[in-house]
Computed example of a mutant assay.
Amino acid sequence: MTFDWQGVFPALTTKFTTDDTLDLPAFERNLQAQIEAGVDGIILGGSLGEASTLTQPERETLVRHAVKKISGKIPVVLNISEASTKEGIKVAESAADLGASGLMLLPPMRYKADDRETVAFFKAIAQSTTLPIMIYNNPVDYKIETTPDMFEELLELDNIQAVKESTRDVTNVTRLRNRFGDRLKILCGVDTLAMEELVMGADGWVAGLVCAFPRETVAIYRLTKAGRLDEAREVFRWFLPLCELDLHPKLVQYIKLAEVHAGIGTEHVRAPRLSLVGEERERVEQIIKKGLAARPELPDYSSL
Rank of each mutant, 00 (worst) to 15 (best):
S84V: 04
A226G: 13
S128G: 07
R222T: 01
S71D: 14
G278A: 10
V252R: 00
R29P: 06
K164Q: 02
L98A: 13
L22A: 06
L98F: 13
V91C: 02
L229R: 12
G7C: 10
Q161L: 00
D149M: 11
D191P: 06
M134S: 02
K73P: 00
G263V: 03
E156A: 14
P148N: 08
I133F: 04
E153G: 05
A194W: 02
M195W: 03
A33F: 05
T224A: 08
M1N: 13
P57N: 08
A26V: 10
H65W: 05
R177G: 02
I144A: 05
T118G: 05
D20I: 13
I135K: 00
E156L: 11
F236D: 05
A219D: 01
P241L: 12
Q286E: 15
R228W: 09
D246L: 12
R215D: 14
T174G: 10
R177T: 09
L240R: 03
E28Y: 14
T129H: 06
L257V: 11
S81C: 07
E197A: 11
D169F: 11
F9Q: 06
D4I: 10
Y221G: 03
F27C: 05
Q32M: 11
G46V: 07
L12W: 02
T224N: 08
T53R: 07
P139W: 07
L184S: 04
E165H: 07
D23P: 03
K123H: 12
D40T: 11
T55V: 14
L54H: 00
T21A: 15
R295I: 06
L245G: 02
V284Q: 06
T129C: 06
A95S: 14
V170Y: 01
W238C: 08
Q286W: 11
G72V: 07
R116E: 15
M150I: 12
K290E: 15
L247A: 15
D4M: 09
A207G: 10
P241I: 06
E267C: 05
A162C: 08
R273I: 06
K143M: 13
P107D: 02
D203N: 15
T118Q: 01
A11H: 01
R177A: 13
L298G: 09
P296Y: 09
G201D: 09
A207Q: 04
L209Q: 07
M109D: 04
Y301P: 03
F9C: 07
E280Q: 15
